[in-house]
Design a protein around this nucleic acid. Structure first.
Lengths: 189, 189
DNA sequence: AGAGTGATGGGACTTGGTCTCATCACCGTA
DNA sequence: TACGGTGATGAGACCAAGTCCCATCACTCT
């Protein structure tokens, strides 16, 4: 028998999602979250940097994207490399079984300024990571920056489409489609 | 004789900038700032939403940019409208006499995660405002979004060049130059 | 058996941020 | 001149976020 119940981080994240949905982010204290997870307040802060972070802890986007971009064929353009990253997200992150969870999480973030601010920071960090990943492919800095911005824009738009409606398409397909639309728009600039 | 010393907001912002430079953001409490400005803590929060905001209160970028974009000639492309907005910034915001202040402020923001997070939020809001401003010119949504992203990217790059070194060029000129470089990079995507 | 380890509990403490009530110089009007 | 209204401020209670330190205790290794 284990010394402690396992998966403390996961239990905290689950409890937080539940409570935020029940009473809202503001009306939930960290102590509430910890107690529902059967833990102490101080333990919460051992697993998450702050209250906001409990909804972002996974942060699972950067790693698959950067890996895919890095390992894309040498001949691929920056946006083609980005597209292969989107496929990876469809395979490992935005899978059908995680759709419901992701949508609930999205609704919570959109509903509270503090969480939207954290989201903005995460987006900025993601774009920065994409920029350096593209740069490492030998792309000039400015072009890498532009590609990363366009990729981030397409990613967000694709995410919205994927979570909207009864859309059951694979995320990778949606994202590739969105990216090509962004590319078409760019050529009209 | 005035009932109270005037310019409470400005005095608070000045005091904050001083103290952050002296002891760092973390080692400065809101009470410290208020006392140096000759005010009470509660008065600080009447003028600023929170501690971070004291460095962003001006938020002077959005209004001139949106105004210029809106009033740009009908025939102008989105990026041309954006460029006229950059000129407006050079005239009204990034003026030579404010350079030193702006650079000090920048150093503080870069040095502290909390402030960088707020900066990310402000950037996201700016991009959103630019997007709707461009949309109101009759530009399709996706193209407007792309233009706004590129504009924001150019703006940040231009800002860095303007504050670097002994660069004495007019901000509008630098920004136009940067924007044309971004545009050149885009056509290579 | 005994020392070490590592996640946890618990609680004191600082600070950000909210809220409420009192103050008090000025302004308009009678 | 008197007097009530106004608006920015002061003061302080209060709550929650986040930090810090020390104790605990089941398990492991020697």
């Amino acid at each position: 028998m284990a010394r402690w119940e396992p998966n403390a981080s996961q239990r905290l994240a689950d409890a937080a999602l539940e409570l935020f949905a029940e009473r809202g982010y503001e009306n939930t204290t960290v102590l509430d979250i910890a107690k529902r997870a059967g833990l102490a307040k101080s333990t919460f802060f051992r697993h998450f940097q702050d209250k906001r972070e409990v909804l972002f802890g996974e942060d699972a986007l950067v790693e698959p994207l950067v890996t895919a971009i890095t390992s894309a064929p040498t001949g691929a353009t920056p946006l083609e490399a980005m597209a292969s990253g989107f496929d990876a997200l469809g395979r490992d992150v935005f899978t059908p079984d995680r759709r419901a969870f992701t949508v609930r999480r999205r609704a919570l973030i959109d509903a509270h300024p503090d969480l939207r601010e954290r989201e903005a920071l995460k987006t900025m960090n993601l774009t920065a990571a994409l920029t350096t990943a593209v740069e490492r492919r030998g792309t000039p800095a400015l072009l890498a920056g532009v590609s990363a911005q366009l990729g981030t824009l397409a990613l967000k738009a694709a995410y919205e489409r994927w979570s909207d409606l009864g859309n059951t398409d694979d995320f990778g397909d949606i994202a590739r489609q969105t990216l090509s639309e962004v590319q078409a728009a760019v050529s009209a600039v």
